[in-house]
């Protein structure tokens, strides 16, 4: 208690001086750090999709932020595919992914409840490089390279 009081006072003074600050999700962050390299986070309401380096290769992972646990996504990761960009909807139900497979870049949509993967057709002169899924999962914004220029294509989803 003797130690706690000065620490509490110092925290209060610091907060008072700087105003409210973002609070790190320490347990989750520690877990992410232990898991190794991570990139390309995409937040839903209680979900986060990201690309994680594991065993010398990268794969997509979906985390339940409340339980701080990975959620199985069977059929999403392929050993012969390289994930480039991932995006989740608000409910962690739909995930959009740009991946490189057989020397080509493609956009796929994963539905977790169905464990299904659907190829999203893109214009033949477009190379997809980044994807953003609308929070309700009904529209995709895809960054493509077309004729040497970065452009954005919007794709309606069923």
């Amino acid at each position: 208690m003797k130690l706690l009081a000065p620490a509490l006072l110092a925290t209060t003074l610091l907060t008072g001086c700087l105003g409210p600050m973002p609070i790190p999700r320490s347990g989750l962050n520690r877990q992410l750090e232990q898991a190794g390299g991570n990139r390309d986070p995409s937040l839903g309401l209680r979900w986060m999709a990201l690309i994680q380096q594991r065993g010398g290769r990268e794969q997509v992972q979906l985390l339940d932020l409340q339980r701080q646990l990975p959620v199985p996504v069977p059929g999403l990761n392929r050993p012969d595919a390289l994930p480039i960009s991932v995006s989740t909807d608000a409910n962690g139900e739909r995930l959009a992914l740009v991946r490189q497979l057989g020397g080509r870049s493609e956009v796929v949509l994963y539905r977790r409840a169905l464990q299904s993967l659907q190829l999203i057709p893109m214009a033949s002169d477009s190379i997809p490089t980044q994807v953003s899924l609308r929070a309700d999962g009904r529209q995709l914004a895809v960054q493509v390279s077309r004729n040497g220029l970065w452009q954005i294509d919007l794709v309606e989803l069923p």
Partner: peptide, 12 residues
């Protein structure tokens, strides 16, 4: 003009 890094609002 080039456009990249798209982000949609949830209500579209």
């Amino acid at each position: 003009e080039q456009r990249r890094d798209p982000a949609l609002s949830g209500n579209g």
